[in-house]
Amino acid sequence: MKMTGNTIFITGGGTGIGQGLAKAFHGLGNKVIIAGRRKAPLMETAEACPGMDCHEIDMRDPASIARVAEWLVKHHPRLNVLINNAGIMSGDKTGSVMDDQKTLATVETNLLGPMRMTSALIEHLKTRPEAAVVNVTSGLAFTPLAHSAVYSATKAALHSWTLSLRVRLKGTSVRALEIAPPWVQTDLMGGRDEPRAMKLDAFIKETMEKFASGADEILVDRVRMLRDNPGPDEWAFVEKFNGMMAL
């Protein structure tokens, strides 16, 4: 993906990884529009980056996604990059009685949200000479964390869907890319001060370097042990990993 001259829309762009990517791409001179549920962090981020735009969105609501997509095409017709970053994570009780509302919220936000957002914008993106859909998954897409089984499953599904999207977009001007972060110091699951997690600034710096390399999968070195695990003997590492991460 080219690193400059883009008009980029980032969901979940007011905090965490989304905010970090927004600031990094803005710093390279791209036009960046961020969106999320909460107005205050969106405004704070945009005000700190002159020229950045923002819009509220509910990734669980198809009507909200449709309205924002229509607004984007009307007010930012040069839009050529969609970064599906918005996501939620919580612990769950897989193996016991599940909280159905929490499960539904996670699936709608993390999986259906990116699918719907992409569907709403894909035909417009095809009109741009160099375009991309970037899905933010997780190292847990490849090695699940049993404490957050639903989150891990949504990210595995989004990875699979990204592979299919890449096949279906062959021959168009749109690339399907994937960022699979490791554990990063963000507010997700209260990890901002977690010493075992990767510092956000370091993650963004390395991720931008990987973007510039032209790879389809943007993988910082720290996530590779999770990414490389799937295979016929994957259970052994899944068991070991979850033993290390036991809360």
Rank of each mutant, 00 (worst) to 15 (best):
K23F: 07
V73C: 02
L72H: 01
N84I: 05
G13K: 04
M245N: 07
G14E: 00
P144F: 13
E70K: 11
N6R: 05
K126P: 04
A212Y: 11
K39R: 05
R168M: 08
L219K: 02
L82H: 13
S173D: 12
M225R: 15
E47Q: 14
V133P: 00
T207H: 01
N242D: 05
N85A: 09
D216E: 13
I65R: 01
T11P: 02
T109Y: 13
E206I: 00
N30D: 12
M198H: 08
G36C: 13
L177P: 15
G18S: 08
T4I: 08
E194R: 14
T137K: 08
D53I: 02
G139V: 07
K210V: 13
A132K: 00
I34A: 06
P230F: 00
E123N: 09
S138R: 15
L158W: 07
D61G: 07
T106P: 11
L82W: 11
V68T: 04
K199H: 09
E108A: 15
P144V: 13
M208A: 10
P41V: 06
G20L: 01
P77A: 14
L163N: 12
M3C: 02
G171M: 08
N229H: 05
I218Y: 08
G18V: 00
P62D: 11
M98A: 15
S96T: 06
R38H: 14
E239C: 14
A156L: 05
D100E: 06
K240T: 11
G231H: 03
D193K: 03
E130N: 01
I33W: 04
P41K: 01
L145P: 07
G231P: 00
G12S: 01
M3I: 06
V223I: 03
I34Q: 11
D99T: 03
T172G: 10
M198V: 12
H124L: 04
I204M: 08
G214H: 08
K74N: 12
R166T: 08
L121V: 01
K205F: 04
M1Y: 07
T127W: 11
T143A: 12
R166D: 06
N242H: 06
A202Y: 04
N85Y: 01
M59Y: 10
C49V: 10
A246N: 10
A48E: 01
H159E: 15
L165D: 03
M89V: 12
R128Y: 08
M189N: 05
A46F: 15
D221G: 12
R116M: 06
K102S: 09
V150D: 00
A141F: 11
L226T: 00
K155H: 04
H124I: 02
K199T: 03
Q101H: 03
L42T: 04
T186K: 04
I122M: 05
I122P: 00
V174K: 09
A24D: 03
I17E: 01
D187E: 14
R166L: 05
R168F: 08
M98L: 13
A46V: 13
L177H: 14
T207G: 02
M115N: 12
A35P: 00
E130R: 05
I17S: 04
L79P: 02
G87V: 11
P144I: 13
G87I: 06
S160M: 13
T109P: 09
M244P: 00
D99W: 04
L79K: 10
G243C: 02
E56M: 11
T162G: 03
L28P: 05
K126R: 07
